[in-house]
C-alpha cells in the first residue's frame, strides 16, 4: 500500500506559521498559495491547523479552505477549535474532507462518536499532541502543548479509535519543528495498539526521516517546516522514497494527459 505524504500547514490568523516544539512561531508565507504549490508538487493530502482557534473557540479557516478546495483536488483535513457538529458541517461544506479534533475530544470524547455517526469515520480524525514524560510514555496535550490532559497518549488513541475516529494524527511536540527526525518510539507504540491508519507528524526533514517513520509503522507522514523552507519538495521526496523501496504514488506519470 502506498504511504501518504501530507503537507501540514499551521495557520495563525491569515499567516502560514511554524515554530519549534509548538512555540516561537514565525511567519512562513501565504497558507492558500503554499497549499496550491504543494498540490502541484504532488502532495497526497493537505492538512490545515488553526493554531489559535481553541483560544477563540472557533475555527477561522473557512475562507482559506474554500479557496484551496477549488484548485487543489486532494483530500483536505482541517483542525483547530472544532467543538460541535455545526462547525464540522461548516468546514465540510466549504470543501474540507475531514476534521481533526483534539481539545474538544479530550473534554468530551463523545464528540468523536457524534461526528463519526453523522459524517462517517472517514471524516473523523483524532489529533493528538504527544509530550514525552520523564518517567516514560507520553501525555496528550492540547492548545499547542500548553495544556495538560493527564491522558496517556496510547490509551487515548485506542479510545479514539473505539469511538469512531477513522485516523489518528499524532504530533510529537518534542520533535515538532526541530527537523531532527520523528519520535519513532511514539509512532511504534501507537501503531501497535490501534488498527486504524496513523499519520505521523513532527520532526521530519526529508525522505530518510519519513522512511524511518514508515519502518516504525506509520501509514502516512506529514511534513511542515521542511516544505515551508523549501528544504524538500514532494517530487524529491517521492523519488528518494521510491529508491528506498518505500511504496509511494507515482505522481509524474499521472500528469501525462492523453
Amino acid at each position: 500500500m502506498n504511504i501518504r505524504l501530507i503537507a501540514r500547514l499551521d495557520v495563525k490568523l491569515q499567516h502560514l506559521i511554524k515554530g519549534v516544539q509548538m512555540e516561537g512561531w514565525r511567519k512562513m508565507g501565504n497558507p492558500a498559495e503554499r497549499a496550491k504549490l504543494y498540490y502541484q508538487q504532488g502532495a497526497d493530502e493537505l492538512l490545515y491547523m488553526d493554531v489559535v482557534a481553541s483560544l477563540y473557540e472557533r475555527n477561522n479557516l473557512s475562507d482559506i479552505v474554500r479557496e484551496v478546495a477549488q484548485e487543489a483536488f486532494v483530500p483536505i483535513t482541517v483542525g483547530g477549535g472544532i467543538g460541535d457538529l455545526k462547525s464540522v458541517k461548516q468546514l465540510l461544506d466549504v470543501g474540507a474532507d475531514k476534521v481533526a479534533i483534539n481539545t474538544a475530544a479530550t473534554k468530551r470524547p463523545d464528540i468523536l462518536r457524534e461526528i463519526s455517526d453523522t459524517y462517517g469515520s472517514q471524516a473523523t480524525v483524532l489529533s493528538i499532541e504527544a509530550k514525552r514524560l520523564p518517567q516514560g510514555g507520553w501525555e496528550a496535550m492540547t492548545d499547542n502543548g500548553r495544556n495538560h490532559t493527564e491522558r496517556d497518549v496510547i490509551a487515548w488513541a485506542v479510545e479514539g479509535a473505539r469511538l469512531g475516529a477513522g485516523e489518528i494524527f499524532i504530533t510529537s511536540i518534542d520533535r515538532d519543528g526541530t527537523m531532527k527526525g520523528m519520535d519513532l518510539d511514539l509512532i511504534a507504540a501507537v501503531t501497535r495498539e490501534v488498527d486504524i491508519p496513523v499519520i505521523a507528524s513532527g520532526g521530519a526533514a526529508g525522505s530518510a526521516h519519513v522512511a524511518q517513520a514508515v519502518g516504525a509503522g506509520a501509514t502516512a507522514v506529514s511534513l511542515a517546516k521542511a516544505l515551508h523552507t523549501d528544504a524538500v519538495t514532494f517530487g524529491a521526496l517521492r523519488d528518494d522514497l521510491a529508491k528506498a523501496s518505500i511504496p509511494v504514488r507515482a505522481h509524474k506519470s499521472e500528469m501525462v494527459q492523453v
Partner: peptide, 19 residues
C-alpha cells in the same frame, strides 16, 4: 478483510492512493 493474504492485520479504513 481485516488481514492480508500473508495473514498480517490490515488497517481499516483502507486509506491510500491505490493503483
Amino acid at each position: 478483510p481485516g488481514t492480508g493474504t500473508d495473514g498480517a492485520p490490515l488497517r481499516v479504513p483502507h486509506i491510500s492512493w491505490g493503483e
